[in-house]
Simulated scan of single mutants.
Amino acid sequence: MPDLDPRHLRYLIAVAETGSITRAARRLMMTQPALSRALQALERTVGVPLLVRRSQATGLTEAGSVLLADAYELVERSRAAIERARGAYSGAETLTVSAPVCDVLAVSAAGRDFEAGHPGVRVHVVPRGWPERPEELGATAADVAILRDCFDRGNLIVDPLAREPRSVLLPAGHPLAARESLTVADLRDEPVTYWDGMSAAEADHWSGADADPHPRRHGPRVRDTTEVIAAVVLGRAIVFAHGTTLPADELPGLRVRPVEGLTPSTLEIGVPAGARNPLAERFVAHARAGWAPAGR
């Protein structure tokens, strides 16, 4: 069986996160034809189609979504190995912080600021996909976990970090899209996208049922952000999202509106219980004192 090229896994991640080969190529600073050839090579290596290529967006097949879940771990394990090797050579101490993809920019900024005040320390940020799974803290050998709307904190000691208001993403042609603001009750009968493996608490928060206990309608099942956006643009569902997951610019076919009464998104920071790490505790204190979410 041929070996996977780690670069190709990074390319798959970029396409999944941007929803477009063109946008992924810009992020990766390579040409679109070169990226397309690399993705085709990855599909040949795996032996099954991984991408669904559409005129306006590129999504993942079921096989692509399965590979994507492992791709994050494989790429980050490679990066962590390199960081540990560099740290061993330079004598630097490495602190590994696991964070949701949507919060990586803010966590990386906090890491750089922490490094500036702690010479000889490197902060290595490991991105995680959604939904949150505290057990990934152990899986990635992280010292600190950043948790977004996580209701099963596992064996973690957790402190609050931030609370962000959530908005609703609507199809541009939706009857409510013309209004400047909405309430949770206005949207109670709308179908909402859902993710596999959600706990009851996560599902209630995701759909707004924790703020308005009205039976919610299940919209389409989604596996990544691209599928969430596609479901909204195609008029199949709505979705509630916090600031760092909202599109930087209003996309064609999509409208973002504030929602009164919607439970905010909660960001927390945790360390493993029973495994005291003074450096991790200093990072937690530093992050809580100076947390500054990355702007859009």
Rank of each mutant, 00 (worst) to 15 (best):
G111N: 12
R112T: 15
D113Y: 14
D113I: 09
F114Y: 14
F114T: 12
F114N: 09
F114D: 08
F114P: 12
E115A: 00
E115F: 00
E115V: 00
A116F: 08
G117P: 13
G117R: 14
G117W: 09
G117V: 11
G117H: 15
H118Q: 11
P119K: 02
P119M: 01
P119D: 04
P119V: 01
G120C: 14
G120Y: 15
G120V: 15
G120R: 15
V121P: 05
V121L: 01
V121T: 14
V121E: 01
R122G: 10
R122L: 07
R122P: 11
R122I: 10
V123W: 11
H124I: 04
H124P: 06
V125Y: 08
V125P: 10
V126Q: 11
V126K: 08
P127E: 07
R128S: 07
G129L: 10
G129P: 09
G129E: 10
W130F: 08
P131E: 04
P131M: 02
P131H: 06
P131T: 06
E132T: 13
E132I: 05
E132D: 14
R133Q: 09
R133S: 10
R133T: 09
P134N: 05
P134K: 05
E135G: 11
E135Y: 11
E135V: 10
E136K: 10
E136L: 08
E136Q: 11
L137N: 07
L137W: 10
G138K: 04
G138Y: 09
A139N: 13
A139D: 13
A139M: 09
T140D: 10
T140R: 12
T140N: 12
A141Q: 07
A141D: 12
A141H: 10
A141M: 01
A142G: 05
A142V: 04
V144Q: 00
I146F: 04
I146M: 02
I146K: 02
I146P: 02
L147E: 03
L147C: 03
L147S: 03
L147Y: 06
L147R: 04
R148T: 09
R148S: 09
R148C: 03
R148A: 06
D149F: 00
D149T: 00
D149S: 01
D149Q: 00
C150V: 01
C150R: 01
C150W: 00
C150A: 01
F151Y: 00
F151V: 00
R153W: 02
R153H: 06
R153A: 03
R153I: 04
G154M: 01
G154W: 02
G154C: 01
N155D: 13
L156H: 13
L156I: 08
L156R: 13
I157A: 14
I157N: 11
V158M: 04
V158N: 07
V158D: 05
V158K: 07
D159N: 14
P160L: 05
L161T: 14
L161G: 12
L161W: 12
L161C: 11
L161A: 12
